[in-house]
Design a binder for these strands. Sequence first.
DNA 1: GGCACTATCAGGAATAATTCTTATTATGAA
DNA 2: TTCATAATAAGAATTATTCCTGATAGTGCC
Lengths: 149, 149
Amino acid sequence: MKKQTNSLSRQMPRMTRQRQVILEELGKVKSHPTADEIYRKVRRRLPRISLGTVYRNLEILSDCGSISKLDLAGRQRRFDGDLTPHYHVRCVQCERVEDVRAEPHTELEKSLTDATGYRIIGHRLEFIGICPRCQKRSHATGRRAAACG
Amino acid sequence: MKKQTNSLSRQMPRMTRQRQVILEELGKVKSHPTADEIYRKVRRRLPRISLGTVYRNLEILSDCGSISKLDLAGRQRRFDGDLTPHYHVRCVQCERVEDVRAEPHTELEKSLTDATGYRIIGHRLEFIGICPRCQKRSHATGRRAAACG
DNA sequence: GGCACTATCAGGAATAATTCTTATTATGAA
DNA sequence: TTCATAATAAGAATTATTCCTGATAGTGCC
Ligand SMILES: [Mn+2]
Ligand SMILES: [Mn+2]
Ligand SMILES: [Zn+2]
Ligand SMILES: [Zn+2]
């Protein structure tokens, strides 16, 4: 329903305290936090910040190319401070999202223009699996399917 | 393209009129409609149906393997009556989603278990581009953003 | 410093998609 | 028919996100 904003389409505006802290907190983690996870982290340093400010600044930082907004499966948006091109793997049980270090498979896009008529500008590849933690737990308990960690 | 290990995990319950019409309407189209698009179609035949019933039955039909629930980018869920394995391409401008007829690239999943520790059960590959219709309409804005989800 | 101008803020309302609750109705077995 | 169960319509609730508003804070100019 929303129009897609072009990446790098916005000049970096002034770096406010809130924006700085959001950027720092996102840089600290290897996970791929949602807006409200970032909000909780940032609030420890800026207790008066609002969730709206977090959303707005994540959008701004993403627009000017300082962070990346992930478009993964699931209803909640996730953000990534790591700008190098990489894929992700998601645990179906605990929803954890981790990096997959691999060369982008640009060859996948070959010949698709002919096949579809679309001008192909990219692709999203996301692996689905069960993380080591959840594998261990399902062996141990033999049941349970949510909220690990 | 998640493997079909746990589809059919629910036995098909009785086929009600509402469920039947939802299935038929989804079977009619080549597009990948959202729940409310299906709701609008179905309502022409069953004007008293509720959106909640559409959601509930799409869930049930998907659980028992009669349709598939797509896990694409974007905040709105889409459904597909076509159960054969295939990929999709999404137009960034008009959000249209169309099929990509291609062999599943199962080789992508090779070696990921070693690299990540995850037990890989599938992958989701979605191409991003501009559809022929939107190419015609757009003003040569040469955007080039390789999005690797 | 004082002033205008603008960006950003906090807080909360609004929106959108989806799920849940409740009272009612349909189905089918005994 | 009687009864238990499954499914329904309607709408409330929830969740994630965006938008609005009035207040505040940074910037350039005098
Ligand atoms: Mn990452
Ligand atoms: Mn399809
Ligand atoms: Zn896990
Ligand atoms: Zn298009």
